[in-house]
Design a protein around this nucleic acid. Structure first.
Lengths: 224, 224
DNA sequence: CAATGATTCAATAGAGTCATTGAATGGAGA
DNA sequence: TCTCCATTCAATGACTCTATTGAATCATTG
């Protein structure tokens, strides 16, 4: 039952076979032609082709002194498309995570001070301070909860799902908030970072609070 | 590029991983729960789960002291469905071919002695004796050509295309003639089997010949 | 802060897969 | 009927994947 399905999948699990399939999707080819297309030895191409024929992906027939292979069914292309959609989305996530660490960090659309101020009044939003506890105690955004970045992974349950999270750290080009957002997103949270850090917030004359974070805080501070 | 796609496919190429996916499609589970569902050791289940998470099929998060795994994306189910459609259609074909070998053999419409006698007088027909050469020498149907089953595949060229072929062997429920007919049909011949075997033919008092087969016979004996 | 226990890591043996080589097959064309 | 050659087969070594074991990790829980 599942073995047959796994067999088909396993047959697709080889880059060169996929390449062959792409070529055959454009029309039937002889073994030799396929081998030339994908730069394989004839014997090797023959083996791949026969394997795929055995899995029901291809059919073959003779034409003169050549044996032509072709897709056995349009459903094969559907399966390929479905797989590539999964792979694509996954690799997009990978790119996003990797990128958020290295390259495209600003593509994560930071939240501006102004926007945060506005949303703090109405929306369901969690403000996350990822600085060390002492910095937090010295002063932080109103209603912010403090979870230093190093502890974030193990304290995710303290963060409410469903709402959006805005993370901030020391300044506009610091990495802590980036890392936090990347981590939270991989865990399924809706997270963004504050465009600037705490110093900028203070410099803008916006309200701030001081004091320690609620101990072993299971009580999330949440706007509204 | 294709490597990522192949990676996803390869990850799906294991029956137990597919089984795990089916379970997770019904809801998130902890590693232990998955292991119990599919009868695996915890460590082994953990490895499979992590592999699939790495391929982008699953996501995981902590809940209390358990780590829950779940499908990362509905597209995963689409891909599974597409694959199973391919596998299903293929297995249907396989069933049909296998069936002609094993189950539905009598659907191959055997030729009766009477019918063969009649057609030997007029039709373009080839009588094929697939018994070993010594049996053939001891006595065979008139105008029959002897090609033992084991040699049939490599001696197909000796059989004329265009006409119908009637194969027989030792008795009504012997497999040699079945196999011969199945083989000939896959190669594009019109082939049927004699309902009974040679003994029954003799017992019915019908004509028979004896002597060895024409050596390296390229001369096909053919009625009419 | 220590104990607990779920999960993961590490290492291993065994099985399976891949690509290459050289030889065999068997159908087509003359 | 004979020859040619596209394709397949067979066998090998390198490599990867799988399952098992036991130990390590790490977050929760009290």
């Amino acid at each position: 039952m599942l073995a047959g399905l796994a067999g088909v999948a396993k047959t697709l699990g080889h880059p060169q076979r996929l390449e062959i399939l792409e070529h055959l999707a454009q029309g039937e080819r002889s073994v030799e032609a396929v081998a030339a297309c994908v730069a394989l030895s004839t014997a090797n191409a023959s083996q791949h082709l026969r394997l795929m024929r055995g899995a029901g992906l291809l059919t073959s027939w003779r034409d003169g002194k050549h044996i032509l292979y072709g897709l056995s069914d349009p459903a094969v292309l559907n399966a390929l498309a479905a797989l590539s959609r999964v792979a694509e989305r996954h690799s997009a996530e990978v790119r996003e995570v990797i990128g958020s660490y290295l390259h495209v960090r600003d593509a994560l659309e930071p939240v501006t001070r102004k926007e945060l101020t506005r949303r703090l009044k109405g929306d369901l939003i969690t403000v996350l301070d990822v600085r060390p506890a002492d910095k937090y105690a010295a002063g932080h955004l109103p209603k912010a909860v403090n979870i230093p970045l190093r502890e974030l992974a193990r304290r995710l349950r303290e963060i409410p799902r469903g709402g959006e999270i805005v993370a901030y750290c020391r300044g506009p080009y610091r990495v802590l908030a980036f890392e936090a957002v990347a981590l939270l997103r991989t865990r399924g949270f809706k997270a963004r970072r504050l465009k600037d850090g705490y110093p900028e917030w203070r410099a803008a004359g916006l309200p701030a609070t001081s004091g320690t974070s609620p101990p072993a805080s299971r009580h999330i501070q949440r706007a509204q």
